[in-house]
Amino acid sequence: MSQKIFRSGFVSIVGRPNVGKSTLLNRILGEKLMITSDKPQTTRNQIKGIHNVPDGQIVFLDTPGIHRAKTRLNKFMVEEALSSVQGVDLILFLVDGAFDPEKEAGMIKEVLSGVEAPVILVLNKIDLIPKGDLLGRMAAYGENYPFKEIIPVSAASGDGVEQLVQLVHGLLPEGPCYFPDDILTDVPERFIVAEIIREKIFRLTRDEVPYSTAVVVDSFKERETGVVAIQATINVERDSQKGIIIGRKGEMLKKIGSQARQEIERLLDTKVFLELFVRVSGEWSDNSRMLKEFGYDS
């Protein structure tokens, strides 16, 4: 009996902000590893998600949304996304199914200019598209770029996702198992904890506040009782933002901490003692030294 080929490789997920890249990867992994919110530009770093299938391993790269960058932080985010299309085995270009294909054509060609890897266009949020429009939209995208395949999915419901994974696996080259088969990512727990806290800020605050926050885990210690004690600092750019994060009588900070702690406990499978502090770090999003300190450095 012939042995099946073990296929493996790196697959970059790219697209505009808020098209569902992190939601798709969470759905594929079967775990909520990437933070999500209904606000654009939630993802800031390039993060690996490791998915094992029979006779294969797919290493997905979740990336920030591609947008017009102004601050140093935003430029870092776009660089993280654009750099991910080089040196990978396959690219998933994610678009919101409700977007106009003609208006997306220029951005797609610009991002994929010079790319050698095959590209699958993933048409997400198909549950929001009238059924009669789906084939026409797929055809319109196909006229603008020679995609390997165009696959409609709903990352939120899971519709079409398993078929997408099977297609990806079949297009990967023969290769080794790059990571142990019992891990979902190569980023440390401290990073994920900071991201969880930042997600709660995105979900609970409005306007410019979530975009002006950076979370740093200062201390991460397991006590003899098994409780993990975590201290983290939420950095903001102005005193007014600090006031909003803390809230009246500290209520907002308690809410952020409570929701984050519950999710961190599920992640670590143990009790967690979480202390949050808020610090004003003026204009950090445009300060190269602070960006490096906060983990936003190419």
Rank of each mutant, 00 (worst) to 15 (best):
S8Y: 11
F10W: 13
I13G: 00
G15L: 05
G15Y: 01
N26I: 02
R27F: 00
R27V: 00
G30M: 10
G30F: 10
K32G: 06
L33T: 02
M34W: 04
T36G: 03
K39A: 09
T42E: 08
N52A: 07
V53L: 14
G56F: 12
L61S: 00
I66R: 06
T71A: 15
N74H: 10
F76Q: 01
V78H: 04
A81K: 06
V85T: 09
V85Q: 05
L90M: 13
F93W: 05
D96H: 07
G97R: 12
P101N: 12
E102D: 12
M107F: 09
I108Q: 04
V111D: 08
I120K: 05
L121M: 05
V122W: 02
V122H: 01
N124G: 03
K125Q: 11
I126P: 00
D127N: 07
P130C: 13
L134Q: 06
L134K: 09
A139T: 07
N144W: 11
I151Y: 03
P152W: 11
G160I: 14
V161H: 08
E162A: 10
Q163C: 09
V165H: 06
Q166R: 14
L171P: 03
E174Q: 10
C177I: 15
C177M: 15
V187Y: 08
P188N: 13
V193R: 07
I196N: 01
I196V: 09
K200P: 02
R206F: 14
E208N: 11
S212G: 07
V217F: 09
D218C: 02
I234Y: 14
V236R: 04
V236H: 05
K242N: 05
G247E: 13
G247K: 06
G247R: 07
G250Y: 15
M252L: 09
Q259F: 11
Q262Y: 12
I264M: 11
R266S: 12
L267M: 15
T270N: 06
T270P: 00
V272F: 15
V272C: 13
F277M: 10
G282D: 15
S285L: 13
D286T: 06
L291H: 04
D297H: 11
